[in-house]
């Protein structure tokens, strides 16, 4: 089993901020827009380095999405930044018409996604954003798992022509993906090989999935752990190859079951190779105030729940 030493402890939003700072230096076409959350999105450095390429739009997210779409007409690559809730549900029609249907090269960058936003509570804890974004034709949906992967993804999407939804979060999390791991859109990362069960995780659930793999090994269960950072387009080949070996799968994400990564995987299985699947995700519920760790435990998104889901799905084989 491959070991993943903890390389540090940082928030994924800082990966976005640092990636954007690098793009500011390397790609003159990149511009950034923010709706009054520059500090929360870690966009300050880009703003300081490139004041002429940074647009503060105020608390007016619909206008931000429209301006971003317009900036592409003239060759710019706009990155919009606000919380995930205000990046998606608040501006869904604007994204649908002005960005997705119009196929504009806008990168919608969304922080504070999911329960780990914490104490602000359910009004801000969007758990439906992956579903909304993956339903839109032309849209690529990415949910990186740590600081390094978020930074790499932020840089990689500049070279992808077309709309992208990049989702990341607020809490400090272990860094375990090496700095030199290339970020390839649509390509799964095989973190650990196994034969008894496949665990596919995205975002903040990837580290708990690695931990669950270790705990399962101690129980004599061989778990294959896969990181899906790109939910759309989904790496169907990697999933089918793995379940052909293990015969069952657990999906894990900080999102509703409905509309999430697990739902996309269930579609792949039902069309190709119907096998048992368990979902580690929020089950048709809003979140609430609390610390990120408390919330992940209460809503069943932690390592013990991953272990239980793996054992349950193996029993269903």
């Amino acid at each position: 089993m491959k070991e993943y030493p903890v390389l540090g402890n940082k928030d994924t939003r800082s990966g976005f901020g640092d990636g954007l700072t690098e793009l500011g230096k390397s790609n003159p076409k990149v511009v950034a827009l923010c709706a009054d959350l520059t500090g929360s999105l870690k966009m300050n450095q880009f703003e300081n380095d490139n004041p002429e390429r940074f647009f503060q739009v105020g608390i007016a997210e619909a206008n931000m999405i429209g301006i971003a779409a317009g900036l592409t007409i003239g060759g710019k690559i706009p990155y919009t930044g606000t919380f995930a809730n205000f990046s998606t549900s608040r501006v869904y029609d604007q994204i649908r018409q002005s960005i997705a249907y119009s196929n504009k090269n806008v990168k919608i960058c969304a922080s504070h996604a999911g329960l780990t936003l914490g104490e602000d509570g359910a009004t801000h804890q969007v758990l439906e954003d992956i579903g909304m974004m993956k339903m839109l034709p032309h849209m690529t949906v990415i949910n990186p798992c740590d600081y390094n992967q978020t930074k790499a993804a932020t840089i990689a999407i500049a070279d992808h022509v077309g709309p992208v939804y990049l989702r990341f979060g607020r809490p400090k999390m272990p860094i375990f993906i090496s700095e030199d791991t290339p970020f390839v859109i649509g390509k799964a990362l095989l973190l650990n090989e196994g034969t008894d069960v496949t665990i596919v995780a995205t975002g903040h659930l990837v580290w708990p999935a690695i931990e669950a793999g270790k705990a399962l090994a101690e129980k004599g269960i061989s778990a294959e752990v896969i990181n899906i950072h790109t939910i759309k387009p989904l790496d169907e080949e990697a999933i089918l190859k793995s379940v052909a070996k293990t015969g069952c799968i657990v999906s894990a994400e900080e999102h509703q079951i409905a509309g999430g990564l697990g739902e996309s995987i269930a579609q792949v299985l039902s069309r190709n190779n119907p096998l048992p699947q368990e979902f580690v995700a929020v089950n048709d519920s809003f979140g609430e105030s609390g610390s990120p760790a408390e919330l992940m435990e209460k809503y069943g998104l932690d390592t013990p729940n991953l272990i239980a889901a793996a054992e349950k799905v193996i029993a269903r084989k």
Partner: peptide
Amino acid sequence: RIASGSLGQGLSAGIGAALA
């Protein structure tokens, strides 16, 4: 240069093009 139909979006798009 952009889809329209759902109302109220074209001024923002125009401003973006003006900034570009």
